[in-house]
């Protein structure tokens, strides 16, 4: 596993919020240039893991290396190599698409002309060049997500984290984003993808990890995962449900900060 071409190496990574263990000693590695599907029910610890890898959360224990840099010891080095498409859009409504890209580009200290050139390229690739001078607040969800993806790619990251990139999008936009992920794959960018849409994960991923209750319960190629259960024409959904059970999860604490605070002991300090 400890190949020199591993771009992400995670060892015994744990994150505790008060008495709740969100991520419980997980270990995995991601090879450079692969699309790594990260699946799990709501509240399983996917977003927490991604936030730790993006240096947004400090691990309680364990180690994680991204692009050979430790996320705790040298977070600013890690930040230079990653892009993030989170559950919430990272865009300012009152800036135009181009202004958003220019602003985020400037934070990476990329020369201005270079930022504009890249922004133009990505907006074109995502069919948003017509709208580049319109306020992001006026866009539909799909349009916003495309600009959001352009923002994450602007810095030409080695690793891009896509946390449910097709959430709430129409089939057309979802399709175009999936094609785009394929393109990225072809260009050798490492993609960490979380999604609840099993066919999407099946179609795009080279490797899949399924996480539940903070632990990785399965990790393999989609083909092997499907072959592992005894069912004809098994789908990834069959695998997922077999492994994680059919009970529904409580995940309200992921979205409402106060509810989350309540869950973690009632201190508003939590988030």
């Amino acid at each position: 596993m400890n190949d020199s071409s591993d771009i992400i190496e995670v060892k015994n990574l744990t994150k505790k919020f008060k008495d709740l263990t969100a991520v419980d000693g997980i270990s995995f590695s991601v090879r450079e240039g692969e699309v790594f599907g990260f699946l799990g029910p709501n509240g399983a610890g996917k977003t927490t893991t991604i936030k730790m890898l993006c240096t947004l959360l400090r691990p309680t224990s364990g180690q994680a290396l991204v692009s050979g840099q430790d996320v705790v010891k040298s977070p600013s080095e890690v930040r230079k190599h990653i892009g993030l498409v989170a559950e919430k859009l990272i865009l300012y409504d009152r800036l135009t698409a181009m202004e958003n890209l220019k602003f985020f580009g400037s934070l990476y200290h990329i020369p201005k002309q270079e930022v504009v050139a890249r922004a133009t390229k990505w907006l074109k690739a995502l069919e948003m060049e017509k709208w580049q001078d319109k306020m992001a607040g006026t866009f539909s969800t799909g349009m916003k997500q495309r600009v959001n993806i352009a923002r994450a790619l602007l810095t030409e990251p080695e690793v891009i984290f896509l946390d449910e990139p097709t959430l709430g999008l129409d089939p057309q936009t979802s399709r175009s984003i999936r094609n785009f992920i394929d393109d990225l794959h072809a260009h050798g960018v490492t993609v960490i993808l979380t999604t609840h849409i099993m066919p999407e994960a099946d179609e795009l991923s080279d490797n899949i990890a399924i996480i539940d209750h903070g632990k990785i319960i399965a990790m393999d190629t989609p083909q092997n995962l499907k072959a592992s259960i005894k069912k004809d024409n098994a789908t990834l959904e069959d695998v997922f449900l077999r492994l994680t059970g059919r009970d529904m999860r409580e995940d309200s604490h992921e979205h409402i900060p106060s509810a989350r605070a309540h869950m973690f002991g009632g201190k508003s300090r939590v988030r």
């Binding site: 993006c54 240096t55 947004l56 600013s76 930040r79 230079k80 990653i82 993030l84 989170a86 559950e87 919430k88 859009l89 990272i90 865009l91 300012y92 985020f104 934070l107 990476y108 200290h109 923002r151 900060p257 988030r271």
Partner: peptide, 15 residues
Amino acid sequence: EREAGTLDGLLIAPV
């Protein structure tokens, strides 16, 4: 910015 999620965008930038 924290609620909107844009703060994360600033925090993952190398600044």
